[in-house]
């Protein structure tokens, strides 16, 4: 560590020896965001999110707390999903399990990745995770991977199903960060996901399913009786 320590001290010393700029004022990000936020009601916000997600090639389905499991199973059959990965200990995983789906094997992410890496990469068709919230401006889902829903669930399986509570949609990233007080408890990995994996690296032609999921399917859960 001594080489890097002396590098550290030399770099910091050079930076400290540099002339001091007229101190720019602390940027007022909150004020800028507030003055550029659009006036909208929750319904408009939901529709803005949906539009942005669909523009990025995600599928969006409206559903309810009671119906999402049946919808998901139908979609899984339609997409030829035979093995679906769920978290080890999640209420939605348990809900699906209770449906005893036929022809669909539910697997639980309960072992460290090193113990089953090849199976995850080669044998899982789809996964289901919960979104913490979403961002209407950019059509982004906020994922907060955890011990019960690890990071690779939203990355390795070719189809990714996401449950989103329609009441948890923020206008923009700034609002999501403040409303959810991100700075107080950043997880190991926080994520914004805004569509299926894609690339335009070959002659600017968009292709989906680059390294991550080919399909992103959002099940937007509205309270019973609320209309989308």
């Amino acid at each position: 560590m001594s080489a890097t320590l002396s590098a550290r001290n030399s770099i910091l010393a050079r930076l400290r020896a540099a002339p001091i700029a007229d101190a720019p004022a602390t940027p007022d990000v909150q004020a800028w965001s507030a003055s550029h936020r659009r006036d909208e009601d929750p319904v408009q916000r939901v529709s803005r999110l949906r539009k942005a997600l669909e523009a990025a090639h995600a599928e969006v389905h409206d559903t309810t707390p009671n119906d999402w499991a049946a919808l998901l199973l139908n979609l899984a059959v339609a997409k030829n999903v035979r093995r679906l990965l769920v978290g080890a200990d999640t209420p939605h995983g348990a809900t699906l399990q209770a449906c005893r789906p036929e022809g669909l094997e539910l697997l639980r992410y309960e072992r460290p990745i090193a113990a089953w890496r090849d199976a995850l990469f080669d044998a899982i068709d789809a996964s289901l995770t919960l979104a913490r919230s979403a961002i209407a401006d950019t059509g982004s889902l906020v994922l907060w991977p955890s011990a019960s829903e690890p990071r690779l669930m939203s990355l390795v399986p070719p189809v990714h199903f996401v449950l989103l509570d329609a009441t948890r949609i923020h206008a923009d990233l700034q609002s999501a960060m403040s409303a959810e007080a991100w700075t107080h408890a950043m997880p190991t990995n926080a994520l914004l996901v805004s569509g299926p994996s894609k690339t335009a690296d070959i002659q600017q032609t968009m292709a989906y399913g680059a390294h991550g999921p080919r399909e992103l399917v959002v099940l937007m859960i509205h309270a019973e009786g609320a209309c989308a």
Binding site: A88, Y109, A147, P150, T188
Partner: peptide, 24 residues
């Protein structure tokens, strides 16, 4: 850069795998 409102993934990393986590 690419005329996107956001990229498909924005990844915030704040540490290595914790004791109870299964990947990372």
């Amino acid at each position: 850069a690419t005329g996107q409102s956001v990229t498909t993934y924005v990844n915030f990393i704040s540490g290595p795998r914790k004791a109870d986590e299964l990947d990372g």
